[in-house]
């Protein structure tokens, strides 16, 4: 358990890095959105990691069972919200990308930038 405790946080940090890198360094707009999704998922992992209690189970109370240990319900609720927020952002982002493709004929950031330079 000891190793896993920190491994979760490290994976969170590494995923955050990978997603963030894709957002900044990639020029393709869809790739940027995929990076953004990874970036957000990493944060979900951080929250869910802190909800775990050793020996615990999902916080669903069963009648008649006493002395059960439950995991923390609150981070789960927060992340349920955050997942839906993430999907909403992605969907809106994709709609904008589709319109960009229709008006510029490209979804590469540098080509779009060049298209608008005064000639």
């Amino acid at each position: 358990m000891e190793v896993l405790g920190y491994y979760n946080y490290w994976v969170f940090a590494v995923l955050l890095m990978i997603g963030f890198y894709a957002v900044i360094a990639r020029s393709n707009l869809i790739k940027k959105l995929l990076g953004l999704a990874i970036f957000q998922s990493a944060v979900f992992l951080m929250y869910i990691t802190m909800n775990k209690v050793e020996g615990g189970t999902a916080p669903i109370i069963q009648k008649g069972v006493v002395d059960q240990i439950f995991s923390n319900p609150l981070p789960q609720v927060l992340i349920l919200t955050a997942i839906v927020v993430g999907v909403s952002t992605t969907a809106l982002g994709l709609a904008i990308v589709v319109r960009i493709k229709e008006t510029y004929g490209s979804i590469e950031e540098h080509e779009i930038f060049e298209a608008d330079l005064p000639k």
């Binding site: 963030f20 944060v43 982002g93 779009i112």
Partner: peptide, 23 residues
């Protein structure tokens, strides 16, 4: 359109940073 895409990406990064902070 490209302006709003940039705003969307930067805004989402900002919001996610905030989320990490309160986490």
């Amino acid at each position: 359109l490209p302006s709003v895409f940039k705003y969307l990406v930067m805004g989402t990064i900002g919001a996610t940073f905030y989320l990490i902070g309160i986490g």
